[in-house]
Design a protein around this nucleic acid. Structure first.
Lengths: 188, 188
DNA sequence: TAGCTTGATGACAGTCACTGACATTGGCTG
DNA sequence: CAGCCAATGTCAGTGACTGTCATCAAGCTA
């Protein structure tokens, strides 16, 4: 048994989410989060760059998964299809966690600072996706446009999935949104 | 002559931009901005919600112009064309101010907090554009997808315009990016 | 085994963004 | 002229975040 309770980072994440849900993001102090996790404020800031970041720890994994899925698409596939399959691939792991995702999302949408942080994470997804497309030989500005449009599709599809009462199948909603984007771009 | 020097808000904007350029956003305190403008820190926060907002005062106008241009498009026009003409319309007023825009943009791109603020302003453009499309009878999710894709186009086109040595014609770059998006979405 | 190093944490002081409450001031209105 | 009002100043406070040094148990080394 170690000197300290294990998984300090995970305890901080859980305590933060609980408190943000219970009393709201702004009404929660970092000292309270740390206290609930049995740690001090200073230790919180050793694990997370700021008070918002504790909600976005999984963003790096999502980006890696997206890049990996895009990189594995068949060579020579049209960029829009590379993006579509990559988005559907990263959508799948969300499927079993609708309630947990909804809780987190309601916290984010209640606070402008948290929305900002979410947007910059999505922008980093877009940048990583564009970079992957470029490595696959897609020229600019097609690579950035496909990536931006793809992340836009993801945002819209995510909103629909979280907003629908039953939830539905996220990957299917993503594919439908891609098809809808194609129709819109064609001028229908 | 009034009791106070006129245009306090404008003086604060100018002082902030100068200081952000001179020594960087993080190295500038609000007290310094206010001091250069001949005001106090408290007055700064009466004019701007926070230290970032002073750089984004024009965002509301941009959104209004975008909505207005989209609303004036011919009835029944395809959503992608409504978006394209609206983007080209708001691009035009940027044309004469390339150097000023570049200076401001270099400040924003040097700081993550400022990037976040820019992204949420762009997201508000997207939301307003989607709302306008809905009022024109465009159904969901087509309205949101067209708006998201359109703002993505704007981001890419803006980056190209600011990045190119000579600058070029912003409205033309926007139209080319829309065409490129159409080609990408078609699976080229 | 005694000592040294290391890594996670605590303690504490400090800066700065931001807020609430109240005071000040000079022009404008009745 | 009295009073109101709008913009600003003053001041005290909260809380996010940082730098610095201390602590202490586990592991490594001689």
């Amino acid at each position: 048994m170690g000197r300290w309770e294990p998984n300090a980072r995970g305890r901080l994440e859980q305590a933060a989410l609980e408190l943000y849900v219970e009393r709201g993001y702004e009404q929660t102090t970092v000292a309270e989060i740390a206290g609930r996790a049995g740690l001090t404020e200073r230790t919180f800031f050793r694990h997370f760059a700021d008070k918002r970041e504790v909600l976005f720890a999984g963003a790096g994994t999502l980006r890696d998964d997206l890049v990996s899925a895009a990189a594995q698409a068949p060579p020579g596939a049209p960029p829009i299809d590379v993006v579509a399959t990559a988005l559907a691939a990263v959508a799948a792991p969300f499927q079993g966690r609708l309630e947990s995702v909804r809780r987190r999302q309601s916290v984010i949408e209640a606070n402008a600072e948290l929305k900002e942080r979410e947007l910059i994470k999505l922008a980093s997804l877009s940048a990583a996706l564009a970079e992957t497309l470029r490595e696959r030989g897609v020229a600019e500005p097609a690579a950035s446009l496909a990536a931006e449009a793809g992340i836009g599709v993801f945002k819209v599809a995510f909103g629909r999935w979280v907003g629908e009462p039953g939830g539905g199948e996220f990957a299917r909603i993503v594919r439908e949104a891609v098809d809808e984007l194609k129709a819109v771009a064609a001028g229908s």
